[in-house]
Design a protein around this nucleic acid. Structure first.
Lengths: 107, 107
DNA sequence: TCACTATTTGGCTATATTGCCAAATAGGAG
DNA sequence: CTCCTATTTGGCAATATAGCCAAATAGTGA
């Protein structure tokens, strides 16, 4: 594995890792509907504000979301709608996996 | 967040988490070229065999790869080519992010 | 200025992940 | 059976992550 390949893998892994938490997955799906402020997300998630804020920081550091300040509130939004195709692809995968398991159970 | 939504997020996060490690990202890209046995991957990665084996287990538990035994060797392959579209989408994102940073540096 | 709200940051503990070594398991060849 | 190779598993120490609380920061309005 050369340096370039290594760098590429690390970049991909960083993004995937950022998406690899249920709360952050939820945030991404919610932001796909439109921008939300931290307090809205916090209400929906039901965790401490600081916890939600930290999850948002992780997503931001990975370049997946961006934030904009407006008065007291900070609005977060997806940097790209690409993430959605992304999720639908993963869910196809999950579906396929479930079907496999069903088949195995029937045999 | 209702139970169904929570379950969906956990499923997505499990898969993303499995992809969220440089070595596993490499494995997925390598398997996209064709099936590989553990020893081939170990040579390329340059880590302990047991380490590589455990990474493969993580990918397998997430339903991303499958294994087939042939003699002494175990051949791993992707369960779905969908993962590739997936990565190209992420890399578009990375590229976009880089361009943004370039722009910011220039201003 | 003071009080109030929204958000971020620091610090802490609990938990999870990683990677190595050693040992166990499984199959092939003599 | 014995030796050898490929792979997996168990165990351990180092590191990373998550979530809460408390405190700091920032903006709003009286």
């Amino acid at each position: 594995m050369d340096d370039q390949s290594r760098a590429r893998c690390e970049q991909l892994a960083t993004i995937m890792k950022a998406l690899g938490h249920p709360t952050r997955a939820f945030i991404v799906m919610e932001l796909a509907e439109g921008s939300r402020c931290v307090c809205e997300l916090t209400d929906m998630i039901g965790a401490d504000t600081s916890t939600v804020s930290k999850h948002l920081t992780v997503l931001k550091n990975a370049g997946l979301v961006q934030s904009e300040k407006e008065g007291l509130m900070v609005h977060y939004s997806l940097t790209t709608p690409c993430l959605l195709k992304f999720y639908s692809c993963v869910e196809d995968l999950v579906r396929k996996d479930m079907e496999e398991k069903q088949k195995l159970l029937q045999n």
